[in-house]
Design a protein around this nucleic acid. Structure first.
Lengths: 110, 110
DNA sequence: TGGCAACATGTCGTATCTGACATATCTTCT
DNA sequence: AGAAGATATGTCAGATACGACATGTTGCCA
């Protein structure tokens, strides 16, 4: 299991427990990934609440559908910068962003 | 006044009022820069509280003295990713980070 | 079953970021 | 003044992230 695969796994769905369980990630690496996941989930939730598709969001924030998909999937090729800039462009306030960041990603099971 | 110079100015010291005053930055760009500034100031404050110099911090987080200097200056060549990863490696918790992010940078005058 | 819209995945050329190094500018001693 | 430690600035080659495009997959309606 190579590094990219790992990050994809972690990124893609997975959050019963923490990102670092049975993956050899350091604490700070795990926390970083969890922050990205939280923002990614928030992005998807906000988009859906507004009844927008990924293509529309892409236009609003000046990107492409595929990149929006990767943002929502917390793909390793997506930076925290991009996630934050995207949410800000969608009108999310710093304080809201910060709150999202302080919480871990929601468990997959409701 | 070119773009790099502008960002340097904003980055370097400056926070009487907001980043966007008399600079033609959009709201989301300004907020993004303010977030970086807040983290940069926090990094410097924490380093000083621990009586470390930039070289020592560089060793801890696996970087170089010059990059640490740029982080603390919120240089445009420094990403949010790098600032966040650095603070996490210094042991700062997600919640603390989030709180720092939610506040604007402190005014230069105490 | 076909068709269509939404979303996911893979790849690529370019742009931006990173650690490292060299060097300049403080700051604080004596 | 001069030396020494700390911090700032400039630059660069390699690494990583970016938007874009093509294509694959999924879900739904008729």
């Amino acid at each position: 299991m190579d590094d990219k695969t790992k990050k994809r796994l972690v990124a893609a769905g997975w959050s019963t427990g923490d990102a670092r369980d049975f993956l050899e990630l350091s604490d700070s690496e795990a926390e970083f990934i969890e922050m990205k996941l939280a923002l990614a989930q928030d992005l998807r939730a906000r988009r859906r609440r507004r009844h927008l598709n990924q293509t529309q969001v892409a236009r609003i924030v000046g990107s492409s559908q595929s990149r929006v998909a990767k943002m929502e999937a917390a793909d390793p090729s997506v930076s925290l910068d991009l996630l934050v800039k995207t949410l800000l462009k969608l009108g999310v306030a710093r304080a809201e962003l910060a709150e999202t960041l302080s919480q871990g990603p929601k468990p997959a099971v409701g």
